[in-house]
Design a protein around this nucleic acid. Structure first.
Lengths: 311, 311
DNA sequence: CGTTCGGGCTGGATCGTTCTAGGTCTGCCT
DNA sequence: AGGCAGACCTAGAACGATCCAGCCCGAACG
C-alpha cells in the first residue's frame, strides 16, 4: 500500500480512501491512485481490512456438504448478498468436521451473524449460540430460541399437494410418511387436514427418507385395493416407489399418481420426472433485511407455491 | 487478550504462547492462563492471528456448489488437512459468482496455495494464476501449466471397465461416449485399447453427460444386433440407459450389462444399483505432501481401482 | 567463586489496513 | 480584511494478535 501511495505521490490514507471507493478524494488523485495500484498489481489484504474495521460485514454460513438441497440454499444466499457489500464465509460440516467446529471457526472470524442450514445441533447449543450472535436457522423447525427461523411451511405444502391430487379426481390418497424426520409431523398434519376437509379417509403408510424406503413401501401401495395416488415424504422416497411400481408393470401416472416433496435434483432427472412440491426458487423477489436479533419464536415462513411437474 | 493476561497475572506474550500451544511456558502458568481464558470465554481473533504471522497456513479451495462430485472431493480435503495445522478457506463458484471472483477472494485472503476443483477457467487464466501462487487443479486435465494436477486416469479406468466386461464373457461391447466433455477422449482411448487388444471391434455410440442422453441412446443400444454390454460415459448417462432398457422390457443385467463411471451418488441409489468405476475413495491411505511449485506438466495420477458393484 | 547456560518470561515492534483528528487551501460572505 | 465553510489531504493511533531481543534467575561447571 505504501508503494502505491509513493508511486501516486499521495499518502497511504488517501490510497485507502480511493480503493474503498469512499468519498473525499479528487478525481485527479483517484485516477492516479487507481493507475498506480493497477501497475503494481496491488490488491488490499482482506485480513488486515477485516481486522481494522469494526464491522466485518461478514455472514457466516454452515452447511452440510453432501446435501444437495443445502447447496442450493447456499447458492441462493450468494445471490442474495450480491451487491449489498456483505460477504459470506462458508464453513462446511462434514463427517470429519462437526458443526460445532464449523461454528467455532466462524466465531473466530468475528462474523456479524451466523446462518445455519439445517443444523443437527441440539436445541440447547443453538440457544446458547443465539445468545452470542444474531442467528438464522434455515430449513429446521425450532421454537423458543432467540433466532430467526426460515423454512418452508411443511403443513401447507403437504396440504397443497394432497389438494392437487384431489383436484385430479383421486379419492383414495395415501401418504408415505417420514416417521420422526424433521418436518414429517407437519406434513402428516397437512395431509390429514386436506383429506378430512374433503371428507375422505386418511391412509398413512410407513415410508422414509431414502429411495430404498420407497421401494420397501411399494407392496403396500400396489396391493389390491391400494391407493390411486400417493404423496411421498420426499423425492427420493417417491423415486423409489416410482421405480418399483414401474418394475411391477404399473403405468405411472395412468394407474397410479405419485407426488414427491422438495423439488430436489432427483425429481428433475428425466427418467424420474416427478411431480414435486418446491420451495419457491432462489431467485429475486424476496424481501431483504439485515439479520437482527428478534424476540423468541419469531419466524418467517413463506407459503409454498402450487405443485408443478408432470408425473 | 490483555484481560486474560491480567487475570492470569502474566504478560500478553505469554498468553499467546500458551494458547498457541508453543513451548516456553511453565506448567503452572500454562494452567493459570488456560483457566483465565476459559473463565472469560476468550477465543483468539483469527483475523489478527492470520495478519501477524507470515504463514497463514491456509489453503484456498474453489468448488462448484451444485456438483455432488465436487462436494465429495471437498469433504475428503477436510479429512486430509485435519490435524496438520492447515486450514481450508472455501469459496464456491455458482452461477451468480464466477470462478474468477472466488479466486480473487482467496488471493485477497493471502492463501498460501489454491486448489481448484474441476475449474472451467480458460487455460491462460490458470497459467497466470499458477504464476502467482502454488496451484493444484483437481479433476481436470491440464498440460503445460506450472500447476499440480490430480485426477483419475480416465484411460486406465475405461480400459479396466471394458476388461471387466470382457471377463464376464461379453464380445460385443459398446461405449456411449462423452463427446467433447473433459475426460471423454481419454475414456474413448481406454475403450479402444482394451477392445483392440482383445481383437474385438470397437463400437462407439453418441452418449452424453445427462440421463436424458442415456435415454436418447437407448434405441441404438437395444436395436437388433446391438451390443450385449455398454460402458456409459458416466453414471447419469448409464442410469438413463438403464431406465430406458428396463422400460423396454429388458432385464439388466441378464439381457444387457451396463457400466457407469464416477461412482457418484446416482449409482448408489438402490433403484439404480449400477456397476461403476470409482476414484479410490476419500479415506486415509493417500500420501500427503505440501503443495509446492513444480515443473510444468508434473502430475500425480493414481491408478483406478477395479470396478465393483452389481449391475 | 565467577561464568556460562538455558528455561521462563516480558516489553515493544510489527503485520496491513482503517479511523480520527486535524491541517491546508480556496472561495465566498459579511 | 476577517471569518467561515467545505473540499481535500495527511500523520499517527488504533485493531488484536505474533515475533524478537533481551532480562532474570537458579543450576551446573571449571
Amino acid at each position: 500500500m505504501a508503494d502505491v501511495a509513493a508511486r501516486a505521490g499521495v499518502s497511504r490514507a488517501l490510497v485507502s480512501i480511493v480503493l474503498r471507493g469512499a468519498p473525499g478524494a479528487s478525481p485527479a488523485n483517484r485516477e492516479r491512485v487507481l493507475r498506480a495500484a493497477a501497475e503494481l498489481d496491488y490488491h488490499p489484504d482482506h485480513r488486515a481490512r477485516l481486522l481494522r474495521s469494526a464491522r466485518t460485514r461478514t455472514l457466516g454460513v454452515v452447511h452440510a456438504l453432501h446435501r444437495p438441497f443445502h447447496a442450493e440454499l447456499v447458492e441462493a444466499l450468494y445471490g442474495a448478498v450480491e451487491g449489498t457489500g456483505w460477504r459470506l464465509a462458508l464453513e462446511p460440516s462434514a463427517g470429519s468436521r462437526p458443526e460445532r467446529a464449523a461454528v467455532r471457526a466462524l466465531l473466530d472470524l468475528r462474523c456479524e451473524a451466523v446462518l445455519l442450514v439445517g443444523p443437527a445441533l441440539p436445541r440447547a447449543d443453538l440457544a446458547e449460540l443465539a445468545g452470542r450472535v444474531p442467528l438464522v436457522v434455515l430449513a429446521r423447525a425450532l421454537r423458543g430460541v432467540a433466532a430467526d427461523v426460515v423454512r418452508t411451511d411443511d403443513e401447507a405444502g403437504a396440504r397443497a399437494a394432497v389438494e392437487h391430487l384431489l383436484g385430479l379426481g383421486h379419492e383414495r390418497v395415501a401418504h408415505l410418511d417420514g416417521g420422526r424426520a424433521p418436518g414429517a409431523a407437519e406434513r402428516r398434519r397437512g395431509v390429514r387436514a386436506a383429506l378430512t376437509a374433503a371428507g375422505l379417509p386418511v391412509t398413512l403408510l410407513p415410508g422414509g427418507l431414502t429411495d430404498a424406503d420407497g421401494v420397501r413401501a411399494a407392496p403396500a401401495v400396489l396391493a389390491p385395493g391400494g391407493p390411486g395416488a400417493v404423496l411421498a415424504f420426499n423425492d427420493a422416497c417417491a423415486a423409489g416407489l416410482l421405480a418399483a411400481a414401474r418394475a411391477a408393470g404399473r403405468d405411472v401416472p395412468a394407474d397410479l399418481s405419485v407426488v414427491g416433496y422438495d423439488d430436489s435434483a432427483v425429481a428433475a432427472l428425466s427418467t424420474v420426472a416427478l411431480t414435486t412440491v418446491g420451495g419457491g426458487g432462489g431467485g429475486g423477489g424476496g424481501r431483504r433485511r439485515r439479520a437482527a436479533r428478534r424476540p423468541p419464536g419469531a419466524r418467517a415462513a413463506p407459503a409454498p407455491p402450487p405443485p408443478a411437474g408432470a408425473g
